[in-house]
Computed example of a mutant assay.
Amino acid sequence: MSWLTRVRERLPFGTKRETPDNLWIKCPHCQDMIFTKEYEENLNVCPKCAHHGRIGADTRLDQLLDDGFTLLPAPEVPQDPLRFKDTKRYRDRLKAARASNAHPDAFTAASGTIEGKPAVVGVQDFSFMGGSMGMAVGDAFIAAAQRALDDKCGFICVTAAGGARMQEGILSLMQMPRATVMTRRLREAHLPYIVVLTDPTTGGVTASYAMLGDVHVAEPGALIGFAGQRVIQETIREQLPEGFQRAEYLHKHGMVDMVVPRHDLRETLATLLDYLSPAKAA
């Protein structure tokens, strides 16, 4: 027995404490390490560089809506209608995505109030297959818009998507005109439709309901566009300007109405709802 072992047996050393794996988080922008608790208390915004991290549907709804909101039921749609398979079956991809998410697909909606103003809020979750738009997303968007029509209140859509869901082919692309019809119905009813563009909002979502709002609000630094920057650059054979497709660039060029930090988003949406909602009959 070595002298070190003998000393350790005689001295009252405590057991080694385990350090949680999720105690720290690295900011993807500035690469600094932040206490996870501090990061979450700051609404998932880096306290050092103000990078706005991606958040899930439940977190987003909790941040925007007053307490006591009601989740709308998820629509039932055919599973794997094209029996699609690439390196893995689409049915298996769905199963894996649902195992790691609290909701059955990428779009979750709730009815409630924002600082006392009635609203329906729909949120796309990028963590569910890249927030891709398939039949379930289309039906959920339509159901949420219809609930806003029924309740005669504003509809807020928080977008985050990589585009249409390729595994559903033309069925996913058909969600673009279906959602467009609902935005028109909201306008005809004089009900506000407000879009909150978060990182990233791209593809068919950008080409449809993400750009049809009465007001377009973007989070700082959000990537917003249809095709990717590399694809555009190779197509037009021109060097694109710095910050191209970012929220601040689009705001400067009139594609986005305002860029609002996450800490001010709830108050801003309440103000917009108050201003845009039809006056109640006396």
Rank of each mutant, 00 (worst) to 15 (best):
M1F: 08
M1L: 13
W3G: 07
R8L: 14
R8G: 12
L11D: 14
L11C: 14
P12W: 06
P12Y: 07
R17A: 14
D21Q: 12
D21W: 15
N22P: 09
W24C: 08
W24V: 11
I25K: 12
C27S: 04
H29T: 14
H29R: 13
C30D: 15
D32M: 15
F35C: 14
F35I: 14
T36E: 04
K37P: 02
K37R: 11
E38F: 14
E40A: 12
E41G: 07
E41F: 11
N42M: 07
L43I: 02
N44R: 12
V45H: 03
C46V: 10
C46T: 05
A50P: 08
A50S: 15
I55S: 04
I55Q: 04
A57M: 03
T59M: 15
D62Q: 15
Q63T: 04
D67F: 06
F69K: 10
F69A: 09
P78L: 01
Q79I: 08
Q79S: 15
Q79Y: 03
L82I: 03
K88T: 12
R91N: 09
R98A: 09
N101T: 08
P104C: 04
D105R: 03
G112R: 01
T113Q: 09
T113N: 13
T113L: 14
I114L: 09
I114K: 05
G116R: 11
G122F: 12
Q124N: 15
Q124C: 11
S127L: 09
G134A: 12
A136P: 04
V137M: 01
G138C: 05
A140C: 03
A144N: 08
A145S: 14
L149H: 08
F155W: 12
F155D: 02
V158P: 02
V158G: 00
T159V: 07
A160K: 01
A160Y: 00
A161G: 09
A161D: 06
G163K: 01
A164T: 10
A164G: 11
Q167M: 09
E168Y: 01
E168I: 04
M174V: 00
Q175F: 00
P177Q: 06
R184H: 06
R184G: 13
R187N: 08
H190I: 03
L191A: 05
V195R: 01
V195A: 03
L197N: 07
G203I: 03
V205M: 04
T206Y: 10
A207E: 13
A207R: 10
Y209P: 00
Y209E: 05
V217H: 06
A218S: 11
A222V: 04
I224C: 06
G225K: 05
G225F: 12
F226A: 15
Q233M: 03
I236S: 13
E238M: 07
E238T: 12
E238V: 12
Q239T: 13
F244T: 02
F244K: 05
Q245P: 05
K252R: 15
G254D: 07
V259D: 00
L265D: 02
E267A: 14
E267C: 04
L269A: 04
D274K: 08
Y275I: 15
L276Y: 06
L276C: 07
P278N: 06
